[in-house]
Deep mutational scan, measured.
Amino acid sequence: EWCEALHSFTAETSDDLSFKRGDRIQILERLDSDWCRGRLQDREGIFPAVFVRPCP
């Protein structure tokens, strides 16, 4: 499952995944309604679900 970043997100901890608006992120797991775990290029981490939308 893939999503597109609606806003940029800067990691606040070593577990977070930083990304820029427009990045396509592979969703690996939905942790709960607020957080997802994903992969961007060679990095993995968690990020807020409200920062992304599903890719068509």
Rank of each mutant, 00 (worst) to 15 (best):
T13C: 11
W2K: 03
P48C: 01
E12M: 15
T10P: 06
E44V: 12
S8D: 15
R24C: 11
H7W: 13
F9G: 02
A11D: 01
K20I: 08
I46H: 10
R43S: 08
A49P: 00
W35Q: 14
D42I: 00
R39A: 08
D23W: 00
E12F: 09
K20L: 07
L31H: 08
P54Y: 04
R53A: 12
D15Q: 14
R43C: 12
D23S: 03
T13L: 06
S14E: 13
L6W: 07
R24I: 11
E44Y: 06
K20T: 11
V50N: 09
F47D: 03
I27F: 03
P48L: 01
D34A: 12
E4C: 07
D16N: 15
E44G: 03
R53M: 09
S8A: 12
S33D: 13
E44N: 05
F9Y: 15
E4G: 00
E12L: 13
Q26T: 05
S33C: 10
G38F: 00
I25R: 00
P56T: 09
W35E: 05
W35P: 00
T13W: 03
D23A: 04
P48G: 01
S33Q: 11
R37K: 10
C55L: 14
Q26K: 03
E12I: 14
C3F: 11
G22K: 04
V50K: 15
F47W: 01
T10D: 15
C36G: 04
F9H: 13
G22Q: 02
Q26D: 02
D15I: 10
Q26I: 14
D34Q: 15
G45N: 06
R53H: 08
I27T: 01
I46N: 13
L17E: 00
E29C: 10
R24A: 08
D23G: 00
L28N: 05
S18R: 02
S14R: 12
Q41T: 05
R37M: 08
S8G: 09
C3M: 07
C3K: 02
T10S: 12
A49G: 10
R24T: 09
I46A: 08
D42F: 03
D32K: 08
K20N: 08
R30F: 10
Q26C: 07
I25G: 03
K20V: 08
D34L: 08
R37A: 03
C3I: 04
F9M: 06
F51G: 06
E29T: 04
C3A: 07
D15P: 03
T13M: 10
V50D: 12
S14P: 14
R43L: 06
R53F: 08
L17R: 02
L28A: 03
P54E: 12
T13P: 01
D42L: 05
R24N: 06
S18F: 05
I25V: 05
K20F: 10
D42R: 09
P48R: 11
A11T: 06
R43Y: 09
R30E: 05
D23P: 02
D32C: 05
T13H: 14
P48Y: 06
E12G: 13
L31W: 07
R24Q: 10
Q41P: 02
A5K: 00
F19C: 02
E29K: 07
H7Q: 15
R37Q: 04
F51E: 05
D42V: 04
R30L: 06
R39I: 09
L28H: 03
T10W: 04
S33E: 14
L40T: 09
G38Y: 02
D23L: 00
H7K: 14
C36D: 01
D23C: 00
L31V: 11
R37C: 06
D23F: 00
A49C: 12
D34H: 12
L40A: 09
D32N: 11
V50W: 09
R37I: 11
T10Y: 13
A5Y: 00
V52I: 08
I27S: 02
G45Y: 03
P54T: 10
G38N: 02
R37L: 10
L17Q: 00
D42S: 11
P56C: 15
W2A: 10
R39Q: 08
P54K: 12
V50A: 15
E44F: 01
A11N: 04
A11F: 00
F19V: 03
R30P: 04
A5R: 00
V52D: 04
F51M: 13
L31S: 07
T10Q: 14
C55Q: 06
D34V: 11
C3R: 05
R39K: 14
E12V: 13
H7C: 13
L28G: 00
F19T: 02
